[in-house]
Amino acid sequence: MRTVRSVAAIFRWPLLIALLTLAGLLAALVGDDAWDAVSWALLSVPVALCGYFSFVRGRRQD
């Protein structure tokens, strides 16, 4: 049986992703060009994680 995690441990990564997403949403609103690129990079994080957890990591465990 694995150890029980604390609430802080459970929400550590979700909180970081939330902050990155928020920064990504605002970046393209603040400026153009470089700001847009920052926005694309930051909003790619949740999309890439969804892909990784759905397809890559699970397969490696099999």
């Binding site: 694995r2 459970i10 990784y52 957890f53 699970g58």
Partner: peptide, 11 residues
């Protein structure tokens, strides 16, 4: 999520 890793998907 108490006993799962972040992002863990049990398939």
């Amino acid at each position: 999520m108490r006993r799962l890793d972040f992002g863990e998907v049990r398939r």
